[in-house]
Amino acid sequence: MNSVFWTHLVKDLRIEWRSLDAIVSMLFFAGLVVVLFSLAFDPRAAVSQGIAGGVLCVATMFASVSALNQAWSREIRHQVMDAQRMTPSSGAQLYFAKVLVNFIFVTLVQIALAPFFFVMYNLHIAGPAWVLALILPLGTWALVCNGVFFAALSIRSRNRELLLSLILFPIFIPALLGMVQATTAVLTGDNDPWLWIKMLTGYDIIFTTVSLLLFDVVFHAE
């Protein structure tokens, strides 16, 4: 970890601190999804335990797209992205800083959303609650590491905001499945979440490695 990484990280955190664009829009959007789902499905006690995990994960996924779209479009103004391409440092550090920043944003949103969510769905955790502190970061990392990568990929196309969701969601399917299954297993206490946690860990390792390796190709594509 050197100064290039820290510079990018601190810069993005500072921009967010001053504007709060990404976090506020994500939080409001995720809250809306939770409300809409609870209106659409009318969750009562037994049902809500079963579907709450899925709703939380899908709400996070939809909400994070709004932050991920801003991740690179911020850099387009004043040709910052072109300047970044010309710097002699490797793109991997820039990518890693972006992933970490967005990971922090999405995690903050999840933490803020959790109490609201528990109230609306009348949840109680039947399984070991601390495991959630492992599942949600792993799933969020899977979402963000792919999301930042594909946002960089789709930034130079037409319809880029739409394209990001179209590319990201199919690739994210196995991680979403793992995240939902593990969360539901903890909430209902019926199943063992560990197989899914292992799968999520594997997914994270594979896709983080490949993204780091291929990021320069995408970033310097011309």
Binding site: S154, R158, I167, L214
Partner: peptide, 17 residues
């Protein structure tokens, strides 16, 4: 949605992913 030679690079990366 993308155009030009950069599209080919981006598509190739997505193909691998």
């Amino acid at each position: 949605f993308a155009a030009g030679p950069q599209m080919q690079t981006l598509a190739a990366v997505l193909g691998i992913f």
